[in-house]
């Protein structure tokens, strides 16, 4: 059971790393923002698996924080960091 959990955690980690190719390549800023989504799903799944492998259930709390931080970083990127020129003038 445990070895299967380990195998799957490594597998999901591998798909996550391959997916980062897209983040690196872009081409638009929106494609780069997808990293926030990646970590909120794949990242959480890996942490859940790790919590069971190591039997350190504190990792469940880490997974919780991951998904909360993903929302915050996503919102900040989309609302503040990636604004159009007109909007920038509007706010600042």
């Amino acid at each position: 059971m445990n070895s299967l959990n380990q195998l799957l955690a490594v597998f999901i980690l591998a798909t996550l790393s391959i997916a980062l190719v897209r983040v690196a390549r872009g081409p638009t800023t929106a494609d780069r923002l997808l990293a926030a989504l990646l970590f909120s799903t794949s990242g959480v799944a890996i942490l859940l698996l790790l919590a069971f492998i190591e039997e350190t259930l504190i990792l469940l709390d880490v997974a919780l924080i991951f998904s909360l931080l993903a929302v915050i970083s996503g919102v900040v990127f989309a609302q503040r960091a990636w604004r159009t020129k007109e909007e920038k003038n509007e706010y600042s």
Partner: peptide
């Protein structure tokens, strides 16, 4: 995480 993904994808798509 479901709520998080949904919110983030809506914000990215709208932006």
């Amino acid at each position: 995480t479901l709520v998080a993904s949904s919110t983030i994808s809506f914000l990215i798509a709208r932006r």
